[in-house]
Amino acid sequence: MIIDFIIFLLVLFAIYGIAGLALNLTLGWGGLINLGFMGFLSIGAYTSAILTTEYHLPVFVGIIAGMILAALISGFVGILIRTIRGDALAIILLGFNFTVYAIGLNWNSVTRGALGIPGIPRPEFFYDDRRFLFLVTILLLLTTLFLYRLTHSSFGRVLGAIRDEELHARVLGKRMFRVKMIVHIVSGALAGLAGALLAHFIRFIDPASFFIHQLVFVLSMIFVGGLASVPGTIIGAFILTLLPEMIRVFVNLPSDILGAIRGIIFSLLLLLVVMFRPKGILGTVELPSAYADRE
């Protein structure tokens, strides 16, 4: 049924919308090139999946535990920002992604390694796709409102100042380390939420579900929609979630090349944005290369 397929896509859009907002908080508003993002998504997904399948805890307990663990580890990784900056930090965070992937692949007794975790339950009341769509839509709305409030508050202004000119912000008395830590923790919690929701929706996860190519997908959403923009992120998530599926449905391509086509579409979109609209569709700041030049 086409309507079921549309509902499936809309759920994915809502979940990736939350993920996009989480990444945009660190990248767009915070100016922190968070290449470890998929690691936090993975931690949220695995924590909730393990707690609900192995220990049979309620799904909402699993999701909240996933958020808390992802937030704590994100905060711990955020401690690095006190001493490490720029390219070195980006590479360390990228390494964090691979570390989480390797743990998922090799800690067989907990994660079941490459076999992945099947049969991840959904919340009782939100068992079917339509009800699950209702749940994720509410969560996306709450996340959107929270991010809007955060970025339009004086705290958001301080965050923008630290992103643009860290030293000057500190000379104005803004406690840079504290602000960056908070942003890391909040972004980690939201990434954990998105990861856990994905696990309970698809009902199966394996390490490949959160490999580095998925980071390109979420990054593309942000760059296309716009850095440091709440509506831009939502639009980016909508376009990037639906576009490849539309092509799959309306252009009859063999299934074995669909993945490659998806990658080509994302790359093309990114190139077009960088060339013709560096701020993205609704972005308010320029791409991070502008910051890298000044470090």
Partner: peptide, 14 residues
């Protein structure tokens, strides 16, 4: 060194 993405008002409030 103004904050490149912020307004005059933002600067003064900061």
């Amino acid at each position: 060194r103004p904050f490149r993405n912020l307004t005059v008002e933002d600067h003064l409030l900061l």
